[in-house]
Design a protein around this nucleic acid. Structure first.
Lengths: 294, 294
DNA sequence: ATAATTATGTACAATATGGAGATAAATCGG
DNA sequence: CCGATTTATCTCCATATTGTACATAATTAT
């Protein structure tokens, strides 16, 4: 058995806490993943996981091993990619994380030409609306929207993303259409709790900014989920345009206070400064900047 | 095929410039080494070696690959050793180089108890009297005798090693026994050309130092070889005690100018400062210091 | 010029691999 | 609380891969 393969199997199980999920990720049967990990444990003469029939957790040795084998396998991937890149082609893995909404709408369209042009690049994309520790979790690149929290990363602006204040006609017919930002205080507000300041929406008109304080009646960490809830008539939300533009076009959502300007979020590519930026990651960032600037 | 195994085979061939020598080093047949390297080249889709039927050399890609896979495999060895050491035992490879004479006499006796006590330590010992680039050639530890040249390494004194001026009775009967250091100038002198100052031997008596200039009629980089040549009656040599003490005891060699003191060389353990000194290397150095201080 | 050595191709017996079927245990849903 | 479902693993086995043996070609040494 190939040691590299068994280590990858181990890492996948550790990541997903599941042999079955790891098998899905790796394209291997659960039996084979199980066999690989047992083989690695036999070679190392130690137990890497505690297991029951329905759950898996790392032992202390397993945690220590995981921490150390991750960079080794990354270097190996880099080495393979280097050899292939010396032959001219971009190659190797790119581990990318992005918000679910953006990552399942605008981003795939932007990625497609790049991936077609570079078939040896292996994209591993994780969509999540939770905060992600980019370096610790082994990502090469993260797409982030809105205010940035982690200043240790390099941020490159890809595009501006306007927010849109909107609600379903059903909701507005029942509760009235606010004529003034202050009126929002009496409405049900659906709030993205990934944002820095949960309870304040900023609106501008005639050169004046209104920092509207409202009650965050419903909150979630997914702007897409909030948009769907707004479509369902639960209340008013403020969401990035990409999550609601289809609903606006079809009439399922209406703009609220359309004469007011909302914040514009930046869409950023984030990557760690101390990681040697590989050619392919650099190339992808440049490509995305080009795609979104059109 | 195991990627790690194929990479190790590749590295061994690169090191020895020979599939046959690599096979001997690894305990594999030449055919298998050849097969492994070809498999690696197929996986990477590149040529790592240029070959004729009797010679091997690295391609440019092969050189670049070698440079990068060495630390990866070292880290993997470290990782395996770490897992075993967590179970309490010192484990993993120690790559040691030492001079041939010392390395085949005093050193093995000193190493033996350590290796018996730590069966999971895998000693890889290279004896050479040539200068060795310790870091570049992948050694963890070098034993050196005499003046030190490379100040970037940490040197720990293990023991003092006196030099002995001596010749065979056959030579001395034929050419006379020098009564004074200056008389050496008329003798055949066998000189270790690893030493800094080839043509000067330093002798001391009555508080006075005599820097004896002589002609280096015969020179070699092996004190053991010089000792054997002196035993054969070729001339006078000055050699570390360990290379000649058996011949002195048996009468095959005699001390020359025995009332004069010679230089005392230090025996040093040298290791790189920037390499994280593993527990087992540290333990070995401590052990050797203890052995030689008795 | 011949012998020895090195690297490799081909064939094949031996061994390992990966899948299938079955089992045991934990968790979920009714 | 019980049955169904899911997960992890064991055992068996057909298939694929491995590592060795024999042979070949080419280079180097004697």
């Amino acid at each position: 058995m190939d040691r590299i393969e068994t280590m990858r199997a181990f890492m996948a199980v550790a990541r997903d806490n599941s042999f079955t999920a790891a098998g899905r990720r790796l394209g291997l049967s659960t039996k084979l993943v199980s066999k690989y990990v047992r083989h690695l444990e036999a070679e190392l003469q130690t137990q890497l996981f505690n297991r029951t029939t329905r759950s898996v957790s790392l032992t202390d040795v397993g945690s220590a091993y995981l921490e150390r084998c991750r960079p080794i396998l990354e270097q190996l991937d880099e080495l393979d990619a280097l050899v292939r890149e010396r032959q001219g082609a971009l190659a190797g893995p790119i581990r990318l994380t992005a918000p679910t909404g953006f990552g399942s709408t605008r981003l795939p369209a932007a990625l497609l030409p790049f991936l077609k042009q570079h078939p040896d690049v292996e994209l591993d994309m994780t969509l999540t609306d939770s905060r992600v520790a980019i370096v610790e979790e082994g990502f090469d690149l993260a797409i982030r929207i809105g205010s940035l929290r982690d200043s240790t990363l390099i941020a490159r602006k890809l595009v501006d993303m306007p927010l849109v204040l909107c609600a379903a006609p059903e909701y507005l017919n029942a509760h009235g259409r606010p004529k003034d930002p202050r009126a929002l205080a009496t409405h049900v507000c659906l709030v993205n709790n990934n944002q820095v300041d949960l309870n304040v929406w900023r609106l501008r008109a005639g050169g004046r900014e209104h920092a509207v304080r409202h009650r965050a009646t419903i909150q979630a960490n997914s702007p897409g989920a909030l948009a769907r809830l707004a479509e369902g008539g639960l209340g008013i939300t403020i969401a990035p345009l990409y999550t609601v533009e289809a609903a606006l076009d079809s009439g399922r959502l209406e703009r609220v206070l359309p004469d007011y300007e909302t914040d514009v979020f930046g869409v950023y590519a984030l990557y760690p400064p101390n990681r040697h930026l590989t050619r392919r990651v650099r190339a992808l960032i440049d490509h995305l900047a080009g795609e979104f600037s059109r």
